[in-house]
Design a protein around this nucleic acid. Structure first.
Lengths: 239, 239
DNA sequence: CGTGAGATTGAGAATTCTCAAAGGTCGTGG
DNA sequence: CCACGACCTTTGAGAATTCTCAATCTCACG
């Protein structure tokens, strides 16, 4: 059940059998949730963290003026609110974008890991650090690139992240979310994202129909997106 | 020397005498750096992390198209590249904006902390989680608020962060960076930031001359900025 | 086959950017 | 103590990008 998490961590450092065994026993329960519901509300005290097993969830913040900013999209294997172990109350909300299955890991269990398994602790800490690197990249894309690049970028990133967990191959993957969701992830309007999608389609780079993404020209897409996957940290290094 | 770090952590959880003693012995050396130099280059292998003692540093990314995005501004007491302990190679660069004094903490020392001092480890992990919360807030501000709000927001945030380390009081503080730096922190142009500053000045909210910020109307400034300090996590909770 | 959410398109408006020039400030060296 | 140069701030004018509002179209699902 936590194979995906192990796999994701193993892309960044060796995971010993002992660590692997501890990971297997992290989850206390599994939740099934429908699409479009809040998993975690902003500011609500948490006593467990969650691993996404199946489906799509997003982390988002809302502003007084009403806008929604999606700070992160999560794919299966992501320990998407591990930071609530430290923060206790999150500065943002988390919602399902599709029906999801989610593994619940009590903070008590995580605390025990930090007391008894320092290497695994560091891997989990690394996991939150990767999350930050992702947020920085998104921020940089939002602040310093054109709307077409911003939209192209998300297709590139998701392809590599899904590939790691075996959910993308041959430049195709399922992306069952709405154009408005992408807009909220980039600080754009839904209408404008739609126009940028048309542009990318007409350029022959990528198509996104009926929840299926097909990348026709990876090299050119990454060029338009100014996509450099370094921030995903897809290499092993002792931690 | 690491008083500021202790102080910053103590705002979020009790710091025991033992933890305090360990913090005192973290730094191996202290560096003095001039303004405008890179402390850490993107992708360069790191074997130590750094605490800012005095001055201003920024973390930034550059894009192929040439733009610079400042992802974070740091004030004294910030353990500004603690995440390099996990990542080893950062996805961004770090530069001084003013002359700085910086304490260097070897990764070996941090590793020993994770092996022997789990509570302090969690506090350090928390410290990186706070950093992420900050990035998320900036991202949200960039994506979903007007340029005036974005500029107003930075004045609000820095006031509270500087107050924590005793560098701001009476709605005044030193901000010896350029308007272009603020523009790069918000994904705007320098020219536009200048116009927004005039607007804020003419509204009687805040003045920024010769590196000195004076907030004339905190309540209204926070309203314009849609500033809600929750994300700064300025309360104590057991971690 | 009707319904509703999401996608698509058009037209005009608002915000922000670009380019360019002028005005200030501050430290350095004569 | 003044002059100079470097860098930063300020302002103007026009252009580009992105947004807003509104209507129509499509498609999955009951």
């Amino acid at each position: 059940m936590n194979d995906l998490l192990t796999r994701r961590l193993a892309f960044r450092d060796a995971v010993s059998d002992e660590d692997r065994a501890v990971i297997e026993r992290l989850a206390s329960t599994v939740q099934a949730l429908p699409a479009g519901v809040d998993v975690i509300g902003e500011g609500v005290h948490q006593s467990a963290s969650r691993i996404l097993i199946e489906g799509w969830v997003c982390r988002y913040k809302t502003r007084a003026s009403g806008g929604r900013q999606i700070n992160q999209l999560h794919v299966p294997g992501d320990f998407f609110d591990l930071h609530s172990f430290l923060l206790k109350r999150l500065d943002h909300s988390i919602a399902t974008l599709t029906p999801c299955r989610i593994a619940v890991v009590p903070h008590e269990t995580l605390r025990a890991v930090t007391e008894e398994h320092p290497h695994l602790s560091r891997l989990l800490w690394l996991s939150t650090a990767l999350d930050s690197a992702n947020t920085r990249e998104w921020m940089t894309v939002m602040g310093r690139t054109s709307a077409v690049s911003q939209v192209a970028h998300i297709f590139c990133e998701l392809y590599l992240r899904l590939e790691v967990v075996g959910l993308a191959a041959d430049h195709r993957y399922a992306l069952p979310i709405s154009q408005q969701d992408v807009a909220d992830a980039r600080g754009l309007t839904g209408v404008h994202v739609n126009r940028m999608l048309r542009q990318l389609r007409e350029m022959g780079l990528v198509e996104w129909t009926r929840g299926q993404v097909t990348i026709h020209d990876w090299d050119e897409l990454t060029r338009v997106a100014e996509f450099d996957p370094t921030y995903l940290n897809l290499w092993r290094e002792p931690r």
